[in-house]
Design a binder for these strands. Structure first.
Lengths: 194, 194
DNA sequence: CACTAATTAGGACGTTCGTCCTAACACCAA
DNA sequence: TTGGTGTTAGGACGAACGTCCTAATTAGTG
């Protein structure tokens, strides 16, 4: 159960390759080369390619949950917490322009394949959705918290997809600023309305 | 050069299958079965699978251009023209929930494959981008016409991607309404500012 | 050290796919 | 009818892939 076990290395390499090349496009040979092990060795750790995907999604779920927990720990202000979410578009700007959003691109690919793990991939997005919903609810937006969460999700996904297509840095920056403005308006609107 | 030639039928079937299953996931056998011809017959019309994709994108470019031209012909008001763009999210809501946006999903897939036709796929999106830019410019938003066009593109793509993941009709409707409100604010803001 | 279980390497196997060849068929002009 | 061109069917071919088996190696335990 050590951290750098072969199994963990396989998941790490697969996670990266699934993101950069997509699930279907990534072969056992690709992962084997990245880890530095034999191709036949896979069967001992994972019976099928789907099991590797399952493990990758499981790890992404855990990592995402950790990140969300950290954002909650770093600030008690829901507004600031949501800003942390928006800012990952800046922090990961380079990666997003090259390969898109890891969450969105995987959901999109598995949706087209009507893959068994489709629901599992969606769970990662749902993790963000529910977390954002709780933050908006804490912002006194109980009634439309889910609508706002979905809106922010969609805006982020749209930015990532278009950024991936055109690779224009300024676009991401400008959109993030608009998103932060929208967020401020969102917060103050409810504060003044009471 | 007749309309229902085998070549045209192949492009039609490939267009549909690429949309529903993705490019990589669609095989020659799939297309052959859909058209009702032999698998070996492809080589006479297209040398490679990439050539089929090329023809499909070419047709999509033409169809898109026709649609944009029609929107321009139907109304002389740029605001109303842009509304036509937004409303395709409603008109194609069912298809989008099932398979995503044809433009966005193809761009996303080819970006991951670093495919040769990647730029060609982006051209379809650019067709919308430039058309929207011209409409916003006509709305007295000359200075930020491209920024607004990109914003609308991203919003639309985000809605399509999230709708595809969650398949919630209400979400699409609510987002489209917000988009139309944003559009109205966009138009009146500039009108009142002069 | 000896023995057992865990782990790995290498490759076989069957399938699927894109590509390509060739013989046969259809249509049309002379 | 005859000849030629356009079109189609069927299958061959090699490569790539996921899967699976087995022998060899390593690590852990008494």
């Amino acid at each position: 159960m050590r951290e750098n076990s072969t199994r963990e290395q396989i998941i790490t390499a697969a996670d990266d390759l699934f993101y950069r090349q997509g699930f279907e496009q990534t072969t056992f040979a690709d992962i084997a080369e990245a880890v530095g092990i034999s191709r036949g060795n896979f069967y001992y750790h994972f019976k099928t390619k789907g099991e590797i995907l399952e493990a990758v999604i499981k790890r992404r779920l855990a990592n995402t949950q950790d990140m969300l927990d950290q954002w909650e720990a770093e600030s008690s202000e829901p507004l600031e917490r949501i800003r942390s979410f928006v800012r990952i578009l800046i922090g990961n700007r380079g990666k997003i322009m090259r390969h898109g959003c890891p969450v969105g691109t995987l959901c999109a690919e598995l949706a087209k394949l009507e893959h068994l793990q489709r629901d599992a991939a969606n769970e990662v997005m749902t993790l963000f959705r529910n977390w954002l919903r709780r933050q908006f609810a804490a912002l006194r937006h109980e009634a439309d918290a889910d609508v706002l969460a979905m809106h922010l999700l969609a805006r982020s996904q749209g930015i990532a997809l278009v950024a991936n297509a055109y690779q224009e840095e300024n676009f991401v920056d400008a959109e993030v600023e608009q998103l932060l403005d929208w967020l401020d308006a969102c917060a103050s609107q409810r504060t003044h309305a009471e």
